[in-house]
Amino acid sequence: MKRDVILDTAARLFAERGFNNTPTSLLAKEAGVAEGTIFRHFRTKDDIFLTLINNVKNQLISDIEKYLEVRGPENALEKLESVIKSFYVFVKKNNMEFCLIFRDAPTRYGQRNDDVFLNIKEIYTYVTNYMKDAIDEGKAEGTIRADITSQEFADMLMSTMVGLVRAMHFGFIESSDDILKTVIESFSKLLTK
C-alpha cells in the first residue's frame, strides 16, 4: 500500500517538477511517509523512476492487447489502425506518466544497456513489431502493397506517432482526434494499392 502511494506521488511530482527537482524529502512529505520508508521499498530514487517506466510499459502493452481484443479488427489494415489508435489514446490518457519518458528519461539513462533505456526501447519495439506484423499480414492478404518494406514502414510509422504525441505533450501542436484521423488516412493511402 505505501509502495503504491510512493509510486503515485513520485509520478505526480516527477511530472510536475522533474526528476532532478524532486528530492526524496519532498517525495516523503507529499506521500505522507518517512523518508526511510521510501528506501525500504526502493533502493534509490532511480529505482522508483525505473519502476514507474516499467509500469507504463506493462500497462501500455496490456491496454493495446485489450483494445485489439475488444475491437476485433477484421483485416491487417484495421489491425494497424487499431494499434495506432490505442497507442495514441494510451499516451493521451497517461500524459503524466509519459512526461517521465518525454522529459526525464533521456537524462536518466547513460548507456544503451541501462534498464530505463531498455524499458523504453521495449515499448517502441513492441508497438513497432505489432505494426510490422500487421503490414506483413496485409501484404499476404493483398490489402497492403507488396513493395512496402515492412520493418522500415513500421519504424517510420512509430517514429511519426512518437513525434506526434511528443509534440502534443510539449504543447507544440494541439491534441486533436482530427490529427490522428489524418495520420491514419495518410498512412493508409501510402500502404494500399
Rank of each mutant, 00 (worst) to 15 (best):
T51V: 10
T128R: 11
K2D: 07
Y67L: 06
T149I: 12
A105V: 10
A76R: 03
N21P: 00
I173L: 10
T125G: 05
D115F: 04
I123N: 02
T125S: 13
L118E: 11
I144G: 00
S176I: 05
S159W: 05
A134D: 02
E78H: 13
V183S: 04
L157P: 00
T192S: 15
E30D: 07
S188C: 05
N75F: 07
I6Y: 02
E65W: 01
Q151S: 13
K193M: 11
K92T: 07
Y109D: 06
T44Y: 09
T37L: 03
E141C: 07
L80G: 04
I173G: 01
F117M: 09
M96W: 07
K139T: 05
Q59F: 05
I148N: 04
N95P: 00
Y124I: 14
V183H: 09
P23A: 03
T51D: 11
T143Q: 04
L118G: 03
F172Y: 14
A31E: 05
K181F: 09
P23I: 08
I173D: 00
Y88G: 09
T24E: 02
M156V: 08
R103H: 09
H41C: 03
A10E: 01
V165C: 14
I101K: 07
N54K: 15
S150K: 02
L191E: 08
L190Q: 12
V127T: 12
I120V: 15
Q151I: 11
I135L: 07
T9F: 04
H169I: 00
E81L: 08
A134W: 06
A154Y: 00
I148H: 02
N129D: 13
C99L: 03
T182K: 13
T128P: 00
